[in-house]
Amino acid sequence: MEKNNFWSPYIAGIGLGLTLLATFYIAGWGLGASSAFSLLTGVGIKDISPEYASSLKYFSQYLNVESPLMNWVLFEVGGLFIGALAGALLSGNFRLRFDKGEKMSPVTRGMTAFTGGIIIGFSSRLARGCTSGVALSGGAQMAVAGWIFVIAMFVSGFIAAAFLRRLWS
């Protein structure tokens, strides 16, 4: 059973805010996440078929550089994994599992996890970032991008939840 010994969300939020502030101060940009997935996908496609990868104009921003994997956001997401793993292990929260809503079958959950992922991957490319790069980083800069993304995300999430009551309860 998971211990649920999480920190107060306000304490975690202050820590996250200070981390973001340090990132602005040191690097001159904010935290990101989704572009690491897009970059790795582009590199993977190039490994399988260089011709096909070069036909995809969108991926050229990642592939037409000297060493695509020497990427700031990719290394930051690597750190994210290490930090979250350390947090889960030290607090006794690490447990291998297939997490899902109570009434959902594992097969259905596999499908929701994958389909939801596709939607997230597509929409974060369209919006030029996700909850990290646009909502959190843009929100803190008070960039218009960050706030319109946050509002659109919550409004649509609430509407979708009204139709998908049984997904998580």
């Binding site: 597509f122 929409s123 659109a152 979708a160």
Partner: peptide, 11 residues
Amino acid sequence: GGALFGIGFLI
């Protein structure tokens, strides 16, 4: 993108 993202996030 944000609206679509909210749906993917929920699912």
